[in-house]
Simulated assay, not measured.
Amino acid sequence: MKQRKRVLVKFSGEALAGEEGYGIDTQILKFIADEIKKLVDADIEVAIVVGGGNIIRGVTAAKDGIIKRTSGDYMGMLATVINGVAIQEALESIGLEARLQSAIDMHEIGESFIVRRARRHLEKGRVVVFAGGTGNPYFTTDTAATLRASEIDADMLIKATKVDGIYDKDPMKFPEAKKLPEISYDRALSEHIRVMDDTAIALAKENKLPIVVCNMFEPDNLKRIIEGDTSLCSIVH
């Protein structure tokens, strides 16, 4: 019997904002939910981590010294909970079962993060949305995504972005930028290729967790990549 695949998909908070640049675009929520449903229908176990940059970023909030960095980061964590609730609602609106687990206890809103419970939800075909980052300041949601993916024994971590992979320079600014189909963890770290922050990449390396970078706005991308189409992405491994 073929073993079911288990993946964690990381969405940025900014992606939820759409063209407005802030807040939550419900059409993007609907698109994300539809793409996740394709994975669930294909018997793939799915977990999600979402950032909070469409509402507030801790580093930005603390840049002028009025707000302490730790407080700014906790504000950012709360923003991810707001986004997590929105994604859970979008998934449930199209008939999927979803569970929100937060690293910061909020019993009226979602479950506390318990890894065994998260795994059990996944085994039952529920989508698990991890919110609240790692629960600690000074760690990004990229690191939270890598941590949660490692804890649930995901086969891969998919970073869903606005571009179709990793480039040697910003493809939005440089038309001549070259796509890198695959790179090593060590190269990503030594050359500071901003796939994810260094802590996240180092953690992925330690746990032999492949990081897949792809365009989240192309229909069927996630499903095709998980099924093995590497032309649609870049892989750090």
Results as ranks from 00 to 15, higher is better:
220 D>W: 12
223 K>H: 13
216 M>P: 06
216 M>D: 04
220 D>T: 15
232 L>H: 02
224 R>E: 15
213 V>W: 06
229 D>K: 01
223 K>G: 09
235 I>L: 05
209 L>S: 04
225 I>N: 02
223 K>P: 11
231 S>E: 10
218 E>V: 15
230 T>D: 12
220 D>C: 10
209 L>P: 09
236 V>H: 07
217 F>V: 13
225 I>W: 00
224 R>M: 14
225 I>S: 00
206 E>V: 07
219 P>Q: 14
236 V>A: 09
220 D>Q: 14
217 F>P: 04
220 D>M: 13
227 E>F: 05
210 P>I: 06
233 C>W: 00
206 E>C: 02
222 L>T: 13
230 T>Q: 11
216 M>L: 15
219 P>G: 06
231 S>N: 12
232 L>R: 06
222 L>Q: 08
218 E>L: 12
226 I>W: 00
207 N>M: 05
226 I>Y: 03
218 E>A: 08
223 K>Q: 14
218 E>I: 15
221 N>T: 15
212 V>D: 00
209 L>F: 06
209 L>G: 06
216 M>V: 14
217 F>S: 12
213 V>F: 11
211 I>L: 04
231 S>Y: 01
228 G>M: 08
214 C>D: 05
222 L>W: 14
234 S>Y: 10
225 I>H: 01
212 V>T: 09
211 I>P: 06
214 C>I: 12
214 C>H: 06
234 S>I: 13
232 L>W: 02
213 V>K: 08
214 C>L: 13
227 E>I: 02
219 P>F: 04
226 I>G: 03
215 N>T: 08
213 V>I: 15
211 I>D: 01
214 C>G: 04
210 P>R: 09
214 C>R: 05
224 R>I: 10
221 N>I: 12
215 N>P: 11
206 E>S: 11
222 L>A: 05
236 V>D: 09
227 E>Y: 05
213 V>Y: 07
217 F>L: 14
234 S>M: 09
209 L>D: 01
229 D>F: 04
213 V>Q: 03
213 V>N: 08
218 E>Y: 10
221 N>C: 13
207 N>G: 02
214 C>N: 06
206 E>D: 09
235 I>E: 10
215 N>Y: 13
228 G>S: 05
232 L>P: 06
208 K>T: 04
233 C>I: 05
208 K>A: 14
208 K>D: 13
219 P>V: 15
216 M>R: 07
221 N>M: 12
218 E>M: 14
231 S>H: 04
213 V>A: 03
220 D>I: 12
233 C>R: 02
209 L>R: 09
212 V>L: 01
231 S>G: 08
213 V>G: 11
206 E>N: 11
229 D>R: 02
229 D>G: 06
220 D>R: 11
217 F>D: 08
221 N>Q: 07
233 C>S: 07
219 P>E: 15
230 T>E: 12
224 R>S: 12
218 E>P: 00
208 K>Y: 10
234 S>P: 09
215 N>A: 07
227 E>N: 09
221 N>K: 02
209 L>E: 00
236 V>Y: 08
233 C>D: 01
233 C>Q: 01
208 K>M: 05
223 K>F: 13
232 L>S: 04
221 N>R: 03
220 D>N: 15
221 N>D: 08
234 S>K: 11
225 I>E: 00
236 V>G: 10
222 L>K: 00
